[in-house]
Amino acid sequence: MNTNLDVIAVQGLSKSFDGKRAVDGFSLNVKRGRIFGFLGPNGSGKTTTIRMLCGLLTPDEGQGTCLGYDIRSETAMIKRHVGYMTQHFSLYEDLSIRENLDFIARVYGVKDRQTAVERSLKRLGLSNRSNQLAGTLSGGWKQRLALAACLLHEPQLLLLDEPTAGVDPKARRDFWEQIHDLAAHGITVLVSTHYMDEAERCHELAYIAYGKLLIQGTAREVVEQSHLTTWSVEGEDLTALAAELKNRSGVDMVVHFGITLHVSGGNAQALQQAIAHYREDARWHWSPAEPGLEDVFIKMMDQARDNFR
């Protein structure tokens, strides 16, 4: 593998199911050792894209490489060097934890298999439960087991599809610690998620909706590119205010954040005008706020809906 090349370099990937485009002209470059966050609403094409990257789906159009191997013709090599964690638990529920790891280690031809499995069990903290059936594990433990399984063959690229969905915060934190640790050792990670706090933990982000890549960059870049202005409001009867603001031109988005309301718009001036009247009202206290990723993504999605539907 040429280390100068991007670990993932794909251009114009498209995939349709029954005439419906699940992924449309998707291009992406990811450098070695980066944690790349992949965001988008349900059904936006994240899983389909990841499957195309690891050779599980053949793209209708487009080409590219993963770890330097062609995603069309060299899928066998990609499979050997990529660790893919599926969105839904896909290890064998009727095999024990150890048997699952052992199976995976064998099919990848892991050297010194026994030791590798033992080490993995130990790191998981599951050594004393290794004979328990995988199906009896809780969601968080299943996720840890799945991650351990796809790390057994020491892949250079990890593709993780919503690995923390339905996992408690402590387990999520541990998970992200491990991801950063792996990245520090030069492993590239592409992870899809719904959680904004997780998005902020990534080096770089991409947002996809209706199969199209809408925006890409670091969290800061993404916020800047969105040209979003946000005001934060505190005060009485915010729900009524929100309902009123939503209908005003210049206001693109009104979102509740605990006891504050975030009011955002793509055009700073138009937004100022829209809220000027309310700023004079003593019931509310207005202050400029930094737009969050969530604000940006919600706006992206609204725009995407207008553009592609």
Partner: peptide
């Protein structure tokens, strides 16, 4: 049906 096929296919078998 159980979804384990996806994992199996992602391995080099």
């Amino acid at each position: 049906e159980r979804g384990t096929m996806e994992n199996l296919l992602a391995t080099p078998v």
